[in-house]
Write a protein that binds this DNA or RNA. Sequence first.
DNA 1: TCATATAATTAGGGATACCTAATAATATAA
DNA 2: TTATATTATTAGGTATCCCTAATTATATGA
Lengths: 218, 218
Amino acid sequence: MQTFSEENYLKIIYNLDKQGIKKITPTAIAEALDNNPASVIDMLKKLGDKKLLAYEKTKGAKLTPNGKAVAISVIRKHRLWEVFLLEKLGYEWDQVHDIAEQLEHIHYTGLADKLDKFLGFPKYDPHGDPIPSANGEMVSISRIILEEANVGKTYKVVGVKDTSPEFLQYLKKLKIGIGTKITIKEKIPFDNSMVIMIEKNILTTVSKVFSQNLLVHE
Amino acid sequence: MQTFSEENYLKIIYNLDKQGIKKITPTAIAEALDNNPASVIDMLKKLGDKKLLAYEKTKGAKLTPNGKAVAISVIRKHRLWEVFLLEKLGYEWDQVHDIAEQLEHIHYTGLADKLDKFLGFPKYDPHGDPIPSANGEMVSISRIILEEANVGKTYKVVGVKDTSPEFLQYLKKLKIGIGTKITIKEKIPFDNSMVIMIEKNILTTVSKVFSQNLLVHE
DNA sequence: TCATATAATTAGGGATACCTAATAATATAA
DNA sequence: TTATATTATTAGGTATCCCTAATTATATGA
């Protein structure tokens, strides 16, 4: 049984790894958790003692199979609760993340599975992220960031990298959600912004930061 | 904003008061929380500083209006989550309490109200306890403990005082739930046990401890 | 290469919330 | 009333998880 804090570390390390970061350093973790590298090192020692990860200065932090399983179960709960909050309680896209951050740490035998069943075994959460199954498996479709999309082609929005209310509210304002079709009209080399067309309708220009946080699929 | 622990203290003190205990002492609180009187005194000081309660050796602990409001909001969430777990997720009577103990501390604007609406504004939780409304009001029907019931009369089960899995499982075994009709057949003066008839069907003898923890209504 | 910047680590603390053991205060009972 | 038991309280300590500041190690660049 892990504490809330331990679970958050495992989850963050799992996510950093998924993002393709080769060496997961104390500084990177501290940045992701918005806390101090010194605190991170304390916790890495603790999680190392518990055999949930291995940390070496040269290789960074690596989750053990055990640590990975814990991280995935937390992520599973997080994403299931997000679906619940959006579909059943009527919360908005940009609010579900923060509540799920709390709910993901509630433990009880079968809770995730019963919730999963109640929700009809959803495959994706409201942000387009796949929900791990009870045995920890996750479907994965090929997703690219909008920045890598090609001019002239049309893509479907399948997810977001940044789940902050600021970004999600901005998307809502632009009427962009999971499933929205986006056509790349032009790329501006000067500042890497892009001109896009939303649902064959609205033309708008989005920044580099924007295009790096929207996940699309051809 | 209170910590989990602070909320648990407020809730317990509220419940002890509801149970009619005139002087809520550190020892009584420690017993209810299964911890140490010394720890309780620490916390009473802290909650006193926060103006959530007043503690005097002679009068015991008394919640301020503020402290009471916090306690009621925690109780509201607890009972709403219990309904959710039982009705929506399919948990059993004896399991919902422990999970709700964790869920009751999740805070987010409107969460309790949205949950309340989703559940169809239930008036009672699975143990027969009234669910406080959004403004902190609680319906209350007259309930007596089975021990005080009269021989020959029939009562309806409306609640339990003890919500432990042990007691609830025993009730399940006896096929007693909220709404079950119980007729008092005989009272045994020797050990204060009672012979009761469940739903005009099964005759059984129950102990004094049992009859002190089942709430009924004529 | 050597200086400088950045990252990792250690040392020492603080807050929370619990504990045990000792002491002080209050009840209870002979 | 006085001895004894029960409660309340204080003192001091532990574990968790965070912090700052100082130090050491590693990169990076002139």
